[in-house]
Design a protein around this nucleic acid. Structure first.
Lengths: 358, 358
DNA sequence: TTGTAAGCGTTATCAA
DNA sequence: TTGATAACGCTTACAA
């Protein structure tokens, strides 16, 4: 055998071809090549055009976005800041946004806050430095100044799920009030009367505030329809399982003869309630009715199936990116607010069964 | 009131300060400012240094990474390509990687393949164009050429979970063989004898191949220990629930008097098995033992609790990014292979109970 | 120690 | 229609 025993990869093409090299190869000026690329309308001599075309192909040339960004000020980059990539909702947004961006020829720069809202301004600074053309923000919105800065720099911003107080920006979110109404109505119809709204610590997060407020108001509005209806709210902190257990126990106590039901305000909380139920030895439907925000792939398989309010997450992500891209294309409108409806998926956790039945 | 009823935000600082402006402000040359920033060791006259420092602060100057990248060739960007952001495993990698990158002062550019492996080379091209300094790849690895190209361009690459055939690159992954051994041993000890390994379509994906191969070999190796042990494998395709149901039914048939058990090769498959069980009306432990790859937050709450093999996902992500960053710092070693052990979390799905008991 | 000037890969202005 | 040439914001020889 004449082949060397160790296969070396073919010589490294090393660096990308530049416009200058293409120009040389085609025997034209850099400007001509640039024009061929950017101003297809202004026609070059067909003969020259083909020469350029061939040279480009031969050298496998593609322009450097970095250099373009430097020159044009536009980078074809979009900054995405998420509070917590671990959150399934954020991932859904990410997915939708990434897709829309790809289609529009944008690339996503990702910054994860790891739930540390103090890093929000750091994120925006870093991303701004890279000349991202706009932001998609799914953050706590506590450090509103940072985002406002971005907007002030003239970069379009779209907020997803969480509003920033006082900020002029497109906003894409679930119709929280409507969704809560859906959930409460469902529990009500199923016969649950003593309700508890369980949320992560509200602390200024707009979506949590909206959902809680909606809960209170729906409870009030339903007084006529169901005079024996009563509602409370509880903020569940990570790690404080005792607190949640206690809240659930007193919920049942308050219920007296009535059926106790819980609305959990997102998948994280739902899981906490599920864990609490396991600790308490209670069964969904029977000892406690449940409707949870966010439909997850595992919802149907917990106990008798968890009744959930599904968010159109994909759509939300796509719309967010879509909004942003429209702005980048020059759309100049006052800030829009896009609210999408949730969909209630009824499953076993919200159908009462005789507590002692098997 | 003298204030206008409509609050306009304070005048827009518009564009970022440039090095030239800082130089002007400080009364020095651009070079001096640049040196102040980059070569802290070479000392400037203290007096000048402070002048520069003040000017920088006054203008809130920070250098443009774009311009730096253009000049230096280094961009402080890392490209992350994932097959599917929806996959919890990918998200974990993402999270770990993002964290490590942030700490090292790198930003992540994300490209999601949406499980379309044909886009792999597109992703790498796009990212390369932006001068990313290296790649973290968690892809199917079918289009190995694309990644190889990147490596050939001299960019370090680290592969996570999935090897690319024939590629010289750092590789970070679960110790698949060990994990399978763990799972089979556990089922064996629990008394299950007729086993089925259920995987997503193998089709050349290295981690799937390794797990399946390990399963076959462990079955073979255990013949002495458990002569009545028998094993089969099944590839479950998305949407084909009938196929899976059928496979499970024949598994039980083959089992005769022996206990039938399943090893599912990742969380996606586990969920499919869970769904199938629900359709068949079977209970974990009783009609079927289960050990599933990937521990998820919901695993403990499905049926009697799902026994899982937890991957150190966070660690994997961190290590992947860590490897890459070491290379970027100049580490020159032959490709490393880092294998981390899985951890078996025993729960109810792998403890047999009398099939007819309640 | 500091400044001048060239150049990274583009695009845009202005002549030709 | 095409080609020089000057930016874009930065780093880095080379001079001073």
């Amino acid at each position: 055998m004449s082949a060397s025993p160790i296969k070396r990869l073919p010589a490294l093409p090393a660096k990308r071809a530049t416009i200058a090299e293409v120009a040389l190869e085609a025997g034209v000026s850099k400007a001509t090549v640039s024009r061929f690329l950017n101003h297809r309308e202004r026609l070059l001599t067909p003969e020259i055009a083909t020469r350029v075309e061939i040279a480009i192909a031969a050298l496998a040339y593609s322009p450097s976005p970095m250099a373009q960004a430097l020159k044009r000020g536009r980078s074809r980059l979009i900054g995405l800041v998420v509070a917590d990539v671990t959150n399934p909702f954020s991932v859904a947004v990410l997915r939708g946004a990434e897709k829309a961006c790809q289609q529009a020829g944008y690339l996503l720069m990702l910054f994860n806050l790891g739930n540390d809202s103090r890093r929000e301004s750091e994120a925006i600074k870093a991303l701004t430095a890279y000349q991202v053309e706009g932001f998609i923000l799914n953050t706590l919105g506590r450090d509103a100044g940072a985002a406002a800065d971005a907007a002030r720099h003239g970069k379009p911003v779209v907020l997803v799920d969480r509003r920033h107080h006082d900020m002029q920006a497109d906003f894409v979110s679930l119709d929280n009030a409507g969704a809560v109404r859906l959930g409460v109505a469902h529990l009500l119809k199923a016969g649950y009367r003593e309700l508890l709204f369980v949320s992560e610590p509200i602390s200024g997060v707009s979506s949590r505030m909206e959902r809680e407020a909606a809960f209170r108001s729906v409870i009030g509005d339903s007084a006529a329809e169901a005079p024996d209806l009563h509602g409370n709210t509880f903020e569940s902190t990570e790690g404080d399982s005792d607190g949640l257990d206690q809240a659930l126990r007193s919920l049942r106590q308050r219920a007296q003869g009535r059926l106790p039901g819980v609305i959990s305000s997102n998948a994280v909380v739902t899981l906490r309630v599920v864990a609490a139920m396991a600790r308490l030895g209670w069964r969904f439907g029977a000892e406690l009715g449940l409707v949870g925000f966010d439909d997850t792939e595992w919802s149907p398989y917990i106990g008798p199936g968890l009744t959930t309010i599904a968010q159109p997450t994909d759509e939300l992500g796509r719309l967010a990116a879509g909004c942003l891209i429209e702005r980048l294309k020059g759309l100049d409108l006052p800030p829009r607010q896009i609210l999408l409806s949730g969909r209630l998926l009824a499953r076993g956790s919200s159908v009462p069964v005789a507590p002692e039945a098997n």
